[in-house]
Design a binder for these strands. Sequence first.
DNA 1: TCTGGGGTCCTAGGACCC
DNA 2: TCTGGGGTCCTAGGACCC
Length: 422
Amino acid sequence: MSKVFALVDCNNFYASCERVFNPKLEGKPIVILSNNDGVIISRSNEAKALGIKMGVPVFKNATLLEKHNVNIFSSNYALYGDLSQRVMNTLVLISPDIEIYSIDEAFIDISDLYEKNFSEFGIHIKQTIYKWVGIPVSVGIASTKTLSKVANHYAKKHLENNGVFEMTSPDLVEKILKQTPVDEVWGVGRKYSKFLYKNQIKTAFDLRNAKDSWVRKNMSVVGLRTVKELRGEPCYTLDSMPVGKKAILTSRSYGKPLEKYDDVLQATSNFVSSCAEKLRKQKSCARAITVFVMTNKFSKGPQYINGKTIKFPVASNDTSEMIHYAAIALKMIFRNAYKYKKSGVIVNDLVPEENIQTSLWDTIDREKNKKLMKSVDKLNDLMGRNKVKFAVQGLDRKWKMKQEQLSPCYTTNWNDILEIKI
DNA sequence: TCTGGGGTCCTAGGACCC
DNA sequence: TCTGGGGTCCTAGGACCC
């Protein structure tokens, strides 16, 4: 029984989100900036047409942006996250066999679709999401996930297909793979595409015909899977059960460089708090915490980058305990006389909350602390993020990031709700 | 002035053991 | 020249994704 996958991918997702509640932006160039308003991470088609590149610092695009009056937004993850959920909820209603792959895309297994009219189904998906949520999507349909990615890419580039492209017939697959540059294949990144080009493998079709042993040797089993998928042999199935994360990371570049230990500690303990919250949300505890700091790699000054991992005596998701160990780690790596630009916290070695191994020598009243954390989470849920926090997290937020072009949180903040003037 | 953040998986090589 | 061999576990680093 052969498989059929549909990949539903939102077009220029962040830029499209900004348009949903601000129709004046329709047809106008839009770019979205990363945290700290650093680089461009999403562009509307109009912005792409102007030659504005992805991942390029804003200041390097300043003239272009100004000249064409491009609408610039700081990233607004509260808005994007909420709209993403609406898109996914809609998809689940249409077809429950779904894997949410990222904030803006999902795979659907449509192998058993009634009457096998895949293209028509794709159009139905596209129209429904646009009508209900206001986000335009593209749909790629093929017999493996990797091929459905190729099909989706093709749909986006060739608008005559109305954003839906079915690539199920072998002849068509061959034809499209021949026109697909190898670097556009899912799983082929910068390093591999350079390597493949050097070896005369330039299209997805060339890669499909590469020798298994050669691929295995040079691109590991992961590369071999990609090749097999290009041949129509599914190696990846639909992963519909969201599993708990294996590691959780919170890090930020600071709005301005910090030099004092206390300031870096303040920033870092806020990241710990965020990691701890995420742990409690997925009902996990961590057995270890890593703290890292770094200077600005783009500046000319002295550079320093270091990290330290500390294992907990007992797996934990308690903010105060985690801050305690994070501070120890930070103390070990912190050096004076550097201008720190970024720090971060990774919690790893995660275990389910209910089966943590306690220690004989444990002196902490874990039940009491658990209740405390529960109350803190409840209050913050009710009254807004970080309304209740630990003193070390500070109030002055010297590290806070730049967000000068933030759009309103139309859907997640009552104060930002859309007003309609008649 | 100004260069993001959050993940996964695989492999090579070292430590350790018998 | 050559210094035992083989297994397992862990970690760091590299590739990729969005």
